[in-house]
Design a protein around this nucleic acid. Structure first.
Length: 111
DNA sequence: TGGGTGACCATAG
DNA sequence: ACTATGGCCACCC
């Protein structure tokens, strides 16, 4: 049975993020039509660890490209490690060339 | 049922 | 330019 919850929708979008790309909470929220309720996306991520299949929450950062949720991973460095493993460059807890690796669901998915 | 919460974003001073 | 505050809306108890 599928849950037509907002959370499930967020997970679906996050799982669609291609490897080597990242996006922001606000982009997902806006894509889902939540408007500015980007907080719900972050909150959904918090529960994403409990949801299967696993959601690449490390590919989701805030508007500044900063790893705001790194503190909520299994380890505070887990997020950075995962992003670096995908070819990203992290500096001062912020993704370098964030704009280049930015993946906007509104554009890529052409809503 | 109602209130509080949350890994944010935008605007105003 | 930086700092502070409000709004937002789904989920949990």
């Amino acid at each position: 049975m599928e849950k037509h919850s907002f959370f499930n929708n967020v997970y679906d979008v996050v799982r669609l993020i291609p490897k080597g790309k990242v996006t922001s909470y606000g982009a997902i929220a806006h894509y889902l039509g939540s408007g500015r309720s980007a907080r719900l996306v972050g909150w959904a991520m918090n529960a994403s660890f409990n949801i299967l299949p696993l959601v690449p929450a490390h590919r989701v950062v805030n508007r500044n490209g900063m790893l705001s949720g790194k503190n909520h991973f299994e380890s505070p460095t887990e997020m950075q490690e995962l992003l670096e493993a995908e070819g990203h460059k992290i500096e001062d807890d912020t993704i370098v060339n964030f704009k280049k690796v930015y993946w906007d669901p509104r554009v890529e998915l052409e809503m």
